[in-house]
Computed example of a mutant assay.
Amino acid sequence: MEPKFQSSFIPKGPFVSDAGGIPVRKQAKEKSLFTFISSIIFTLSVIMAIGVFGYKFYLKYSIDKMDSNLQMAQSTLQPDTINQLVRLDNRMTFTKNLISKHHILTPLFGFLEDSTPITVRFNDFQYSTTRQGIEIAMKGQARGYSALALQADIFDKSDYFKDSVFSDLNLNESGDVNFSFRAIVNPDLVLYKKEIERISAPTISPTNTISASSTSSQTATSTIN
């Protein structure tokens, strides 16, 4: 007769637990996970510390190298040459500023020559520098009031003058009209810099233009033939 075994669900040994009632295996797993995370954090901290130290060392090395290069560059420069170049640059800057603010009356005289009718003439010219700019004062004669009105209209439409005034009108023994003229000259139109630019600008002579036109005409005629 075979022996009968009776199964039992009652544990034969005592159930081990900690004081809080948590199983030992679960507590061991939590400790292992905490240890792993702590190890990762510690490793990252060490790597970051090494990186910061290395970056500081690299910066110090770069600064020392740049300082060495600067000292080498300074040793190759000659102080006398540098001083001469500085003085030359100062002179050029001063000359440039002086030219940019310098005024000449040559363009104004050219305008007066071109814009004065044959019935008007000027026999006195004076100018002075004021806070408003260059002020001119002229005296002249016109063959009648119509000629004077024409001259006044030309000056009023010109960009050279502002605040222009005709005064002291009277007839002389010959029947001509004596007059005085006063105005402020536009400073932008009498700059020495602009006059230099105008003179330096290339010009096309009429002879070259006629020659070019003749050459083009001859070429066109030859093509037609």
Rank of each mutant, 00 (worst) to 15 (best):
S32W: 11
S38W: 03
I40H: 03
K60L: 07
K60H: 08
L88T: 07
T43V: 02
S45N: 03
S38F: 03
I37D: 14
G54W: 08
S62N: 12
L70S: 04
I47D: 02
L88V: 08
Y58G: 06
Y61E: 04
I63F: 05
Q84K: 05
K56Q: 06
Q71R: 11
Q84V: 11
I37A: 15
I63H: 03
S39D: 04
A49V: 10
L59A: 04
M72Q: 13
D67N: 15
S68A: 14
S38Q: 07
Q78F: 02
R87Q: 05
S38K: 13
S68Y: 07
S68M: 12
Q74G: 05
F42S: 09
G54M: 13
D80Q: 08
G54E: 02
I37P: 01
I40S: 04
D80K: 02
E30H: 15
S32V: 08
K31V: 13
Y55D: 06
F57P: 02
P79K: 00
G54F: 05
M48Q: 06
F57W: 00
G51Q: 08
L33R: 15
L59T: 10
S32H: 15
S32T: 12
V46A: 11
M66F: 10
L77M: 06
K65G: 05
K56P: 01
G51E: 07
L88N: 09
Q78V: 12
L33P: 01
